[in-house]
């Protein structure tokens, strides 16, 4: 039974690299206070102990890319009070969603020696395409501060502070000089979802959009500027088609770049 004082936490993996769930172990100083206050019921990267549900909170990493995944996520949802997806794979389909724009059968024939062993779906899709999701943490990988925020919110029975605006607002609040305007560096910050702390512009490089599109952003509006800064349309298309290629706003921007002269 769930302990009302120590909520139970389960961590699940689908098609992903494990980097996001490792962020929980990266919490270091805060990890022990968390471990004191939650019961870690299932977390294969940390412990071989596994407790059957129900769970108060499930953190779900990875995208749905096989028929088995599509069944398993429903079981997890049924056993979880709150379901939080973590990372670009779980929230947008991940870089593996590039398959959504291509012929998966051809990939299977070319890549695998025994393609008949591989059971896969034609698409890689976010968890939210299969089951209701309570909260999403974006990013490749997720931000440790946002993970702690959501765990703290669960423990305090409050709503988490998870802003949905652009990376630019973080740069500006930190007093950083815009890499696009002052250096001529292509940057997806104006259309990318905040949450990382604007790490890349902080190191004088452009944002590559690993948190996916900001709410209400207009990615297609950035295309002429990226071209003015010297990026050919195929490069612009690739810039939008990385970690969150299948997020609708970035997918549309990639397709718009292709229409302006992207990859054939």
């Amino acid at each position: 039974m769930p302990d009302p004082v120590r909520p139970s936490l389960a961590v699940w993996k689908f098609a992903s690299c494990d980097g996001c769930q490792l962020t929980l172990l990266d919490c270091e100083d805060e990890l022990l206070p968390i471990a004191d206050r939650v019961e870690i019921a299932t977390f294969h990267e940390a412990t071989s102990r596994a407790v059957d549900g129900p769970y108060d909170v499930s953190l779900v990493e990875g995208s749905i890319s096989t028929p088995d995944d599509a069944v398993r996520i429903r079981e997890i949802r049924a056993r979880s009070r709150l379901l939080v997806t973590i990372g670009a794979c779980a929230t947008a389909g991940g870089i593996q969603a590039l398959r959504n724009f291509a012929d998966v059968e051809e990939f299977r024939r070319v890549v695998y020696a025994r393609p008949e062993y591989v059971r896969t779906l034609a698409t890689s899709t976010p968890i939210s395409a299969h089951v209701p999701v309570d909260f999403e943490l974006r990013g490749c990988p997720i931000d440790k501060g946002q993970l702690l925020e959501i765990l703290g919110a669960v423990l305090a029975h409050r709503a988490p502070n998870l802003p949905t605006d652009s990376v630019c607002i973080d740069c500006k609040r930190r007093g950083r000089v815009c890499v696009t305007v002052a250096h001529g560096t292509p940057c997806l910050g104006p259309v990318t979802h905040t949450g990382c702390g604007a790490i890349c512009p902080g190191f004088h490089r452009g944002c590559y959009g690993c948190f996916g599109p900001a709410e209400g952003a207009n990615p297609a509006g950035l295309l002429p500027k990226l071209e003015t800064l010297g990026m050919a349309p195929p490069a612009v298309e690739r810039l939008f088609q990385t970690f969150t290629a299948a997020a609708p706003a970035f997918r549309a921007a990639g397709e718009a770049a292709r229409a302006r002269g992207g990859r054939p």
């Binding site: 259309v191 952003a217 207009n218 990615p219």
Partner: peptide
């Protein structure tokens, strides 16, 4: 202007 505007907030921050 809405087709060109990114809604990025830079004008309001600056």
């Amino acid at each position: 202007v809405a087709r060109r505007c990114l809604s990025c907030t830079n004008c309001t921050m600056a």
